[in-house]
Design a protein around this nucleic acid. Sequence first.
DNA 1: CGGGTTCAGGAAAACGCTTTCCTGAGGCTA
DNA 2: TAGCCTCAGGAAAGCGTTTTCCTGAACCCG
Lengths: 339, 339
Amino acid sequence: MATLADVARRAGVSPATASRIISGSTKLVTDELRARVLRAVDELQYVPNAHAQLLARAQRTAVGVIVHDVSDPYFAEITRGLQQVATAHGRLVIICNSYRDPARELEYVELLRAQQVAAIVLAGSGYHDAAFTKALKGKLAAYTRTGGRVSVIGRHELPGDAVMPANEEGGYLAGAELFGGGHRKVGVIAGPRVLTTTTDRLAGLRRAAREFGRTVPARRIAYAGFDRDGGAEATAALLDASPDLTAIVALNDSMAVGALSTLRERGIAVPERISLIGFDDMPIARDVTPALSTVRLPLTEMGARAMSLALDNGGGASRTEPVPAVLVRRASSQPAVSR
Amino acid sequence: MATLADVARRAGVSPATASRIISGSTKLVTDELRARVLRAVDELQYVPNAHAQLLARAQRTAVGVIVHDVSDPYFAEITRGLQQVATAHGRLVIICNSYRDPARELEYVELLRAQQVAAIVLAGSGYHDAAFTKALKGKLAAYTRTGGRVSVIGRHELPGDAVMPANEEGGYLAGAELFGGGHRKVGVIAGPRVLTTTTDRLAGLRRAAREFGRTVPARRIAYAGFDRDGGAEATAALLDASPDLTAIVALNDSMAVGALSTLRERGIAVPERISLIGFDDMPIARDVTPALSTVRLPLTEMGARAMSLALDNGGGASRTEPVPAVLVRRASSQPAVSR
DNA sequence: CGGGTTCAGGAAAACGCTTTCCTGAGGCTA
DNA sequence: TAGCCTCAGGAAAGCGTTTTCCTGAACCCG
């Protein structure tokens, strides 16, 4: 690997001069020398060692992102937003997949800190796990104390800047749509209960139920993995336990897609026999049949805003940006038919 | 930010000893000192500076991945495979999105080289662009010359290890299914023609046509973006130009999903009036209605194999691992009805 | 009890770069 | 022409680790 010293030697200048030319310092250098150095760079195919640079100029440039799983469309959309603003600011982003494992999440914070990232954005849901939350808080605090910036998406328990999707309100919207449309027996297919996203959305749903004089009994809630297969599985369980359901709320669109497949398999017409409402409005939602009614969250924008928060240090005050949820009516839901 | 020296001072030992304890060298150290150092680490919340470590031990550990766009399910699946084996080997992976911009791809190779990555995996399609290919080859060569490893997915033009999806063969399979099923007027919605993936798949399709005494005239090929919206748009164009089509091949599933939406919009029954076959078999394929017939490529496995190739240096010989394509018949295609 | 082994621990060089500080040449003013 | 400035370029000190090499103490054996 060619080093700066090699380039300097070849160009017949000092490393100092070579460095100045290559990384564009403000210091003036003759065109003559500049040309010689540039030629040497080209001939040696020299690329500066980023780690050495980082060490020398104590200036952090990369940013870290911790998500549950980039290949999940929900995070893919958020990540796109994150990337957009990061590259617009000339920042490299390091993406870490925790695969919903709190321990791994902790490890990644450490790793990103070691990488000297300028900021860490936590894009995954929080966990109901006091010990973990405390550990995470500790690590994050140690990081911010040394000038690191932190922003989170939808985790109320952490200090620092936050983008807060209206999960509770979104759950309420879905519930109001269904209960308000005359549905009485509404099932829920939910992600893991340790996730705050799950419980927040569920809470909104319950509020809606209350408002319409209904309830969401535990037997009509099926918990499973927050993905397509989890949705399929949970729907099957729900249907077996309560065959008289007239509507189902899926706590995210991936699960809703799984639900759709189970319903289709069992020959249950959607929305005629059962209405279905999802959550997130990921791109697939409009392409399944029937097109999925869902609670829309502007995922890409959420990512973009989280990164913006992370990049410009807002002067110390910890900011929270609420992100509204809106109900999108498509073909998979309808008011209850009176029977 | 606490440094090793801080830890050493606090523990009352030399930096050398602290280093040995913290990064687990083979050298023996008394339990007494070990305890003191570990305590200091804990109290100071010390995390070693990864860049300094990298500089000191000339050992590369991270690997770089360049894809078109992680949020595209095709790449999301591949990336998942890449990640799996990378983390299994204890490697950090740096993901770079080129957004199908060759210039950016070149930049990223440079950046990854600067990051001293142990290997670079190019997961995106190649481009028909001699100047670019030459520049890329040059940069990659400079990288391998210094011990870097390179592996690519489906780019025949580059040296080094490669995972080769059977794009041509896949195109052939789709074509054979349709032409062999009696379809005569088959349209194609294709990605950008500068992508080798597009031309390879198209070539296979043409071979199938030839074999069945048919052709794929230029007017029945619509080029557009390699995503859902591109598919919708291309389908509209195709339908306008050749209303008598009985089948459409989409050169990837995203485009197929877009095609489905245009067809639905126009009230054209699939597969009764028009058969549709996609390519890739991404997860959505089975969840759209009608479920998408497609040419399956084992995306996750392709990613895993590309990373395996990149990580174990195969002793110099450049290896190529072919990946077969298989046709998956679902509800969106059927033989031509004789009219 | 002397000389040779072990072995725990430290001093210091090295990794590849940036940047401060210094030098010496040239140009300017008086 | 002396004295001062300006300015291009180089020397060298870091940046935070790891690791080689060295030191000196403790131990063993004959």
